[in-house]
Structures are given as structure tokens and as C-alpha cells.
């Protein structure tokens, strides 16, 4: 059978080609900076990577994945990536994993995000206190708090329909710790989605809806949603670029990070990319909908990149309601590498 003979030859040729290429593969690849991690930080990293590749005219390749903050750190601590995007500081267990693998890192906050609590535009509510948020989202509220009235008699008589990010998300980790006092402690009878547009859709089509996500998603959908001002004791504060930058939008404004492998930072390509990231983070954060750090902070972090200063300012804990000035003032904790 003619067809089969040809097919057989093609398979044999392909096997031979594959065997030959096994050794030579990768020899001609341009150096690739590998970035993975948080899908929240992704748009910023993508914008910087794109611009950097254009600047270097393809001599340095940059790839960006989005395995999530936790998934990114798993790869980072195995030495598979050079840079890990994170929407929260490195956790204590991730610090231990990296230490065990001998991976040291340079921690760079790159921008702020303001977690925005949204309701349906027909909802008369304009602001909410952190305590009221806790009454709605704490684990004990499960199946109990089902109407806005139950939170406060002045609230509208509407069924409470909740939407939020899934438990794999760094946004979930931050919100639960900031509001409920313990990371990952949340009621679970809400509609979770890893896709924030699903949360937008849910709240926009439910008069009693409530959800939370990054400010950029609110800004793109402000005609369909209302953002609540957050009162953490000093009066209601609207989420905005100004209130996040000056620290008054507390406790729901959070820093976002990149973690750079300290050994990789000795490579000129990674060093150049990291400097380019810090130098241009302000411009690209604004472009993709995040809030830039103050200029002085970027100066400090540029020096940290150049001097390859290792360690984390957070000691494995979440950074709830800290301003960037406080973060900069903290000493860096460097984990000794086990031999």
C-alpha cells in the first residue's frame, strides 16, 4: 500500500530528525528571561516585557506566564523562572521552600492596587465600614447573613448576592486577611470566579449584588457598577489613584511585587531588564490601570536592584494597610541558605 509506505518513511525521517536535534536544541536560542506568577501583576509585566524587547530589538527575549502568585513561587523556588510576579509578599512556607533549594531573591514592590468593593448602581448605599464588611464576609456569616438589612437596619431590604475571587487568588488572600483578620478565612456560600469579568457581570445583573476586585475592573465598568467608599475609622474614603497612593484608602490598597532570583540578577540581561522595569513601572502601571509608587520609592528600589540586596521586608506575613514609606523603612529579612 503506497500510502502506508510513505507514512512509514515520514515517521522514520521524523524520528531521525528528533534524535539529531536532542543535543543541538537550545543552542541557538537567544537568552530568555522567564517570568511567571500572579495574573494580577501580569498586565504590568507584559507591558514592560513588550517595551523592553522592542528596545533591545529581540536580543533579549522575555516570556510571561500567569500561574498565579502561589504557582509562580513554586516554579521560582525550583529555579525554573528568573522573576516571579506576586500580588502579596512571599509567604513563610514559600520562604522555607526557596531556602531549602538555595534560591535567594530580591524583593521589589512595583505598584499599588486598590481592592474595590462594588455593588449594583441602584443600591442606595454609598459607603461601608470595615466592620460591616467583616459581618458580611466572615465565615460565621455563612448561610446567616442573607439580606443587606441584617448588616444595618438603614441598609436596603435586598437579598445579599455575593461574588468574589476563588481561593487560589492572591486577591482572596489579601481581602480575607484585611477584612476578616485571618488569611483565607471567608464564608464560602458566594459565587467564586478566577475571572474578574464574571464578578463584574454578576454584580451588574443583581440588584442585591456585592463583589470585590482590583480598581482597573471598576474603572472599565463604572457605568454598570458602584464602588463603595471604605470607612476604616477615619470616615469613608473612595478608592482612587490618589487615595491609594497617599495611603488613606486603607486597608484595601495593597502593594504588588516582583521577586528576582538574586543569582540571575548577576546576568546583564536580567539586570538590565530589572532596571528597566523599575525605571518604567510608573508609566506602565498607569497604562494598565494600577497605581504607581511615589518616585522616591522607585529610586530606592533601583538601588536595590543594582546592589542586588536580598531579602523580604515582610517576614512571610501579609502587608495589611501599610504605606510604601513604611515598607521602605522596614529592615530586609534575609534567609540564610542551607548547604
Amino acid at each position: 500500500m503506497q500510502i502506508l509506505k510513505h507514512a512509514g518513511k515520514a515517521v522514520a525521517a521524523a524520528v531521525a530528525a528528533l534524535a539529531l536535534s536532542a543535543g543541538a536544541a537550545n543552542a541557538q536560542q537567544a537568552f530568555t528571561i522567564q517570568i511567571d506568577g500572579s495574573s494580577t501583576v501580569f498586565p504590568l509585566a507584559e507591558a514592560v516585557a513588550e517595551a523592553f524587547q522592542q528596545q533591545t530589538q529581540g536580543r533579549v527575549r522575555v516570556t510571561v506566564g500567569e500561574s498565579g502568585t502561589g504557582g509562580g513561587f513554586r516554579k521560582f523556588c525550583r529555579g525554573e523562572t528568573h522573576i516571579s510576579n506576586a500580588s502579596r509578599p512571599i509567604s513563610a512556607s514559600e520562604m522555607a521552600t526557596c531556602r531549602a533549594a538555595g534560591i535567594q531573591y530580591v524583593e521589589i514592590p512595583v505598584a499599588f492596587d486598590a481592592l474595590t468593593v462594588v455593588v449594583h448602581p441602584s443600591n442606595p448605599l454609598r459607603s461601608i465600614t470595615v466592620e460591616q464588611l467583616r459581618q458580611i464576609w466572615r465565615p460565621e456569616a455563612q448561610g446567616q447573613v442573607t439580606n443587606w438589612r441584617q448588616v444595618n437596619p438603614s441598609f436596603p431590604d435586598l437579598p445579599l448576592v455575593l461574588f468574589g475571587p476563588g481561593s487560589a487568588s492572591g486577591t482572596f488572600d489579601y481581602f480575607t486577611e484585611a477584612v476578616n483578620g485571618r488569611a483565607r478565612a471567608s464564608r464560602t456560600d458566594y459565587t467564586p470566579s478566577e475571572d474578574d469579568n464574571v464578578i463584574v457581570q454578576g454584580v451588574a445583573t443583581n440588584t442585591g449584588g456585592m463583589g470585590y476586585f482590583g480598581l482597573a475592573y471598576y474603572e472599565e465598568n463604572h457605568s454598570r457598577l458602584r464602588a463603595l467608599a471604605i470607612d476604616s475609622g477615619a470616615g469613608p474614603v473612595e478608592p482612587s489613584r490618589q487615595t491609594a497612593e497617599n495611603g488613606s484608602y486603607a486597608p484595601l490598597s495593597r502593594p504588588m511585587f516582583i521577586y528576582i532570583n538574586a543569582a540571575a540578577l548577576r546576568r546583564p540581561q536580567v539586570q538590565q531588564f530589572a532596571q528597566y522595569f523599575v525605571n518604567n513601572a510608573s508609566r506602565y502601571s498607569a497604562q494598565v490601570g494600577y497605581i504607581p509608587l511615589p518616585a522616591a520609592a522607585y529610586q530606592t528600589y533601583l538601588q536595590r536592584v543594582q546592589s542586588r540586596t536580598q531579602g523580604t521586608a515582610f517576614g512571610g506575613r501579609q502587608a495589611i494597610g501599610v504605606t510604601i514609606a513604611e515598607v521602605m523603612a522596614r529592615p530586609l529579612i534575609v534567609e540564610p541558605v542551607q548547604q
Binding site: 541557538q28 536560542q29 511567571d36 516585557a49 524587547q53 529581540g58 522575555v62 510571561v64 506566564g65 500567569e66
Partner: peptide, 13 residues
């Protein structure tokens, strides 16, 4: 397995 999202080059040389 780590399929990436931002790849701005072709793998073919």
C-alpha cells in the same frame, strides 16, 4: 505545564 501567555517571538529559527 507552563504554557506561557506573553510570548513575542516565534520558536522557529
Amino acid at each position: 505545564i507552563g504554557g506561557l501567555t506573553f510570548v513575542a517571538f516565534l520558536p522557529i529559527t
